[in-house]
Measured scan of single mutants.
Amino acid sequence: NQASVVANQLIPIQTALTLVMMRSEVVTPVGIPAEDIPRLVSMQVNRAVPLGTTLMPDMVKGYA
C-alpha cells in the first residue's frame, strides 16, 4: 500500500508547508504520495487542513 501525505498539525489557510507539518501514512482514500513531501515544502495550502487530514492535490497551490 502506498503512503500518502497527512497533516501532522492544523495547517492554517495560506500557510507555506514545512517538513514538520507533514507525515506519511497509509490511508484511504489515497492522497498526495509521500515521496512528494520534498516537493511540497514551501508550497501553500489553499484551505485550512485539520490534524490527521490527508493532503489531496487540490489542497496545495501549484501542486496539481
Results as ranks from 00 to 15, higher is better:
Asn1Thr: 15
Asn1Leu: 15
Gln2Ala: 12
Gln2Pro: 15
Ala3Tyr: 13
Ala3Glu: 13
Ala3Trp: 10
Ser4Met: 02
Val5Asn: 02
Val6Gly: 02
Val6Lys: 03
Ala7Cys: 04
Ala7Met: 04
Ala7Arg: 02
Asn8Tyr: 04
Asn8Glu: 06
Gln9Glu: 12
Leu10Gln: 11
Pro12Trp: 04
Pro12Val: 05
Pro12Phe: 04
Ile13Val: 14
Gln14Trp: 15
Gln14Phe: 13
Gln14Asp: 15
Gln14Tyr: 15
Gln14Ala: 15
Thr15Cys: 08
Thr15Gly: 05
Ala16Cys: 14
Leu17Glu: 02
Leu17Val: 03
Leu17Ser: 01
Leu17Pro: 02
Thr18Gly: 03
Thr18Tyr: 04
Thr18Ile: 06
Leu19Arg: 11
Leu19His: 14
Leu19Gly: 05
Val20Met: 15
Met22Cys: 04
Arg23Trp: 04
Ser24His: 08
Ser24Thr: 15
Ser24Tyr: 10
Ser24Trp: 07
Glu25Gln: 09
Val26Ser: 09
Val26Met: 12
Val26Gln: 10
Thr28Asn: 12
Thr28Arg: 05
Thr28Lys: 07
Val30Trp: 11
Val30Cys: 11
Gly31Leu: 01
Ile32Val: 08
Ala34Met: 06
Ala34Lys: 05
Ala34Tyr: 07
Glu35Thr: 11
Asp36Ala: 11
Pro38Ile: 08
Pro38Met: 10
Pro38Gly: 12
Arg39Cys: 15
Leu40Pro: 00
Val41His: 02
Val41Ser: 03
Met43Pro: 00
Gln44Asn: 09
Gln44Met: 14
Val45Met: 08
Val45Lys: 00
Asn46Phe: 10
Asn46Asp: 08
Arg47Asp: 07
Arg47Tyr: 11
Arg47Val: 12
Arg47Glu: 07
Arg47Met: 10
Arg47Pro: 02
Ala48Trp: 09
Ala48Phe: 11
Val49Trp: 04
Val49Asp: 02
Gly52Pro: 02
Thr53Val: 13
Thr53Pro: 01
Thr53Trp: 14
Thr54Arg: 02
Thr54Asn: 03
Thr54Glu: 00
Leu55Glu: 00
Leu55Ser: 01
Met56Phe: 09
Pro57Phe: 07
Asp58Ala: 11
Val60His: 03
Lys61Asn: 14
Gly62Val: 04
Gly62Thr: 05
Tyr63Leu: 06
Tyr63Ile: 05
Tyr63Phe: 11
Ala64Val: 10
Ala64Asp: 08
Ala64Asn: 11
